[in-house]
């Protein structure tokens, strides 16, 4: 499998890792408010504080591995995805099985002109963390075209 995710995805992952600090700080602020209002014990604050340090560190250290091991391939007939560093998995989904494709992008992805792609079959769903807009749209059109052909035939 050749294609790596677009290099910008590393920045997206880095930013979302750093954002977790913010969310844990919000949680800490909430607990502090509880302390002032209802006298909750102050040591509860230790949990969000520890997680605010640990989670971004773990996530940041995983970014290069995620990038290194995340591969995909889109051929005329199928989508292949490969991920995982210690347990590597490889998924194959023929385009004819795809029921629908959802492209979505939050503010961070949008800033880097990326799109998250969700592929759904009749029973499973598969996610590609980020593709450049042209690639994502090409994939969507390809699937729509094949679906249309299948309808015309059947």
């Amino acid at each position: 499998m050749q294609e790596k995710l677009p290099a910008a995805i590393r920045k997206v992952w880095t930013i979302s890792a750093l954002l977790t600090i913010f969310w844990w700080l919000v949680a800490a602020a909430g607990l502090f408010a509880c302390h002032i209002l209802w006298n909750w014990p102050l040591w509860l604050l230790a949990f969000p504080a520890a997680l605010a340090v640990l989670q971004p560190i773990i996530m940041l250290s995983l970014v290069p591995y995620r990038y290194q091991f995340w591969r995909y391939k889109i051929t005329d007939t199928a989508v292949y995805m490969q991920k995982g560093a210690i347990i590597q998995s490889e998924e194959a989904v023929p385009i004819t099985r795809v029921q629908n494709v959802t492209l979505s992008s939050g503010p961070i992805l949008r800033h880097f002109q990326l799109q998250e792609v969700n592929i759904e079959t009749a029973s499973t769903s598969h996610k590609i963390d980020g593709l450049t807009k042209p690639v994502a749209e090409k994939l969507r059109d390809q699937i729509l075209l094949l679906a249309k052909e299948a309808r015309d035939e059947g």
Binding site: G84, I86, I87, S89, E91, A92, V93, R97, T124
Partner: peptide, 11 residues
């Protein structure tokens, strides 16, 4: 009727 196939390998 097969929707997707996955192969997994630990290192």
């Amino acid at each position: 009727n097969v929707q997707a196939v996955e192969l997994a390998q630990s290192i």
